[in-house]
Design a protein around this nucleic acid. Structure first.
Lengths: 203, 203
DNA sequence: GTCTATAACCGGATAGAC
DNA sequence: GTCTATCCGGTTATAGAC
């Protein structure tokens, strides 16, 4: 990487990291490029130099998140034993909930708001991610390793339970007397979700 | 109710309904009083007549939602049989997910964004709601009706799975080939969540 | 590539006639 | 209680010097 390329890469990275945090607090419309620039430690004009419009930056953030989740889904193929695979997946998802909470929140807000900037690429990536995992679950059912559950609803359940700890962190914090749940609780949380899933599907 | 009171009540209702929809799409910062006024069929100045600031209106919307959810929780006391109580609660929650999706989304966005307008009243109502249900679950555990599960994590799981169908409706729609899940699927969805919960906790 | 200055516009809120 | 007109501050985006 030449010097110029490095500068470009560094600035881009700084901007995306800042954008993730601001978008996760205010959503697309509520976030301002000014706030993002301040958080990134750059003048506002630089944001527009690297990302012509606010929407370009926002879409980039969404694509980054989805790419990470699709990557997480790979672990589903790590074992032919559904118990091991579910545990590995839930564990990785919860880890991400605590280590990269902003990305998850941006995605959640975008979906809740009705997916106004979702383009064809994002939709097809999401479908691919979903299809892949449904197929694996259905294979296990055919092999007699799982009860005949609805794979789609099971995925929604796992998704919802794991995302909850990233997206609704503020709510869990209020309920937990102002104290954040963190990495220390993650084993406990993973075990709890995994138990619910396994009792529900293992024969 | 006198004529004037009726006008006041009608306008207030119209404004809150419109606000729920706009806030659920754009969040607090992203929503504009102009859009809310248009949706309510009133001039913008009228919004400010009934609700001096945008924040006043927003807080009112949040309080309405929480009041409804606290009301939903009452059904938890409807039976001493946890199976019946869980089923009734999940069922009511899913019904609300389909019949009043906007309210749920406003709440979700507010929490995801970090609860910037959460005041003491909202926090204590939320805690009350939570405590009430934890207590009931723990009573069932003491009575030997349920496994020794962590009541708090169980509530998060139920909350997350039921809310998912309201808040992430757009995502489920993409995955379902552009077709909305609706009331027709609600029995199936309720049964799915209830089965997961019951297998997880019933001895 | 960086940054200051500014254009062009839009937001919440209010004044004041009806 | 309703509505038009308007103020003022803040927003995205760009022009142009360095």
């Amino acid at each position: 990487m030449t010097g110029k390329e490095k500068v470009r890469w560094d600035s881009t990275r700084k901007i995306i990291d800042a954008a993730e945090q601001i978008f996760s607090k205010k959503g697309f419309e509520g976030a301002t490029t000014r706030e993002i620039a301040d958080k990134a430690g750059l003048p506002k004009a630089n944001i527009h130099y690297y990302f012509p419009t606010k929407e370009d930056l926002y879409v980039q953030v969404l694509k980054d998140i989805l790419a990470e989740w699709i990557n997480d889904a790979e672990i589903f193929d790590s074992s032919d034993d559904p118990e091991i695979a579910f545990r590995a997946y839930v564990s990785r998802k919860i880890q991400h909930s605590f280590t990269r909470p902003f990305a998850s929140k941006v995605w959640a807000m975008e979906v809740i708001g009705g997916g106004t900037v979702f383009d064809v690429h994002l939709k097809s990536s999401l479908l691919e991610w979903n299809t892949k995992k449904c197929r694996q679950i259905n294979k296990w059912i055919e092999q007699g390793k799982l009860r005949k559950v609805n794979a789609q609803y099971l995925l929604y359940a796992i998704w919802a339970m794991t995302q909850h700890y990233a997206d609704f962190e503020y709510q869990t914090r209020i309920i937990n007397n102002g104290q954040s749940l963190g990495i220390e609780q993650s084993d406990e949380i993973v075990e709890n979700i995994v138990q619910l899933v396994l009792r529900g599907v293992i024969i």
